[in-house]
């Protein structure tokens, strides 16, 4: 439901500590962030800074050890019960015995949506990610990038208002990634969904987002937030504009600060 004042995601002093035999890991320390409905927010930061952890917390796959976390104004557990979000994992995680079409149908099968509309919906999603010609193929017959697009179609199939995406284009070459960035941006604008997007790519984050959240590691913390005021529509020229460059530099500086490097070395 757009237009309500309720933030899509709200975290207040959120903490996540993993207890282990070799001591505790503070994966997330006192994180504060509000994500409004319809925003596209990227999380960027060094490996191990708690990006995946934050997504998994929102998805109710793990439970925070402290602080407050609301998804659409509700507890993550309730949000999961209501199937309020779609999760795109770091690897496609397709079921190898299902065809591309049947993989997209999986959430609809599990959620028992009306049979009459299932097929049409799945075909529509495949079209959206440009794979309608591959409906009958098995996952192993597809390239990595195509598999990842199937997993995005699958996450969209049941029309969740919130998309949690964990480095969905991490394993792709630069050009394919830029192409899929464009597709994702178009999709986001058409559907008005809220997206939380984890990435290691500075230009990807700047190109896609309304805001970029920069994180640091040991302990995992939010270092700063960069508002991205690039105009729409964003395209190849956007990536070459001076403003894009400025914003990317801002993000880079925050990342360096988190790494403990000097801002201008």
């Amino acid at each position: 439901m757009r237009g309500t004042a309720q933030p899509a995601v709200h975290l207040k002093d959120l903490n996540m500590v993993f207890r282990g035999a070799q001591g505790d890991t503070v994966a997330l320390q006192d994180a504060n962030l509000d994500i409004a409905q319809g925003e596209f927010v990227s999380l960027i930061g060094p490996s191990g800074c708690g990006k995946t952890t934050l997504l998994r917390l929102m998805a109710d796959l793990i439970t925070p050890t402290g602080g407050e976390l609301l998804v659409g104004g509700k507890s993550p557990a309730l949000a999961r019960q209501e199937r309020a979000y779609g999760y795109v994992f770091q690897s496609p995680a397709l079921l190898e015995w299902r065809t591309v079409l049947n993989n997209v149908l999986l959430p609809l099968d599990v959620m028992n949506t009306p049979k009459a509309t299932r097929q049409a919906r799945a075909h529509e999603m495949l079209k959206l990610v440009g794979l309608e010609g591959f409906a009958g193929r098995y996952p192993w017959q597809l390239s990595g990038g195509m598999q990842q697009r199937v997993s995005i179609a699958r996450a969209l199939a049941f029309d969740p208002a919130l998309l949690l995406m964990d480095e969905p284009f991490g394993a792709l070459d630069e050009i394919t990634r830029e192409h899929l960035n464009g597709e994702l941006l178009r999709l986001w604008q058409e559907t008005g969904k809220t997206v939380v997007f984890v990435t290691h790519g500075i230009s990807e984050a700047v190109f896609l987002s309304t805001r970029v959240v920069v994180m640091t590691s040991r302990p995992g913390k939010i270092e700063g937030v960069v508002d991205i005021d690039l105009p729409y529509p964003r395209n190849v020229e956007t990536r070459e504009s001076p403003r894009f460059f400025e914003l990317a530099t801002r993000v880079r500086e925050l990342l360096r600060r988190g790494h403990g490097f000097d801002a201008d070395d």
Binding site: A59, L61, R80, Q81, R83, Y85, G86, Y87, F89, Q90, S91, A93, L95, W97, L106, P107, D109, V110, M111
Partner: peptide, 29 residues
Amino acid sequence: PDPMQEDLLTTYRASGWQTFWKLRLPASL
């Protein structure tokens, strides 16, 4: 099954029964 595939079904709020039929059993064939 990959832990990620199990997590995937968790995000769908799949029942234990559904996880068995739709994930574990076909994976075991």
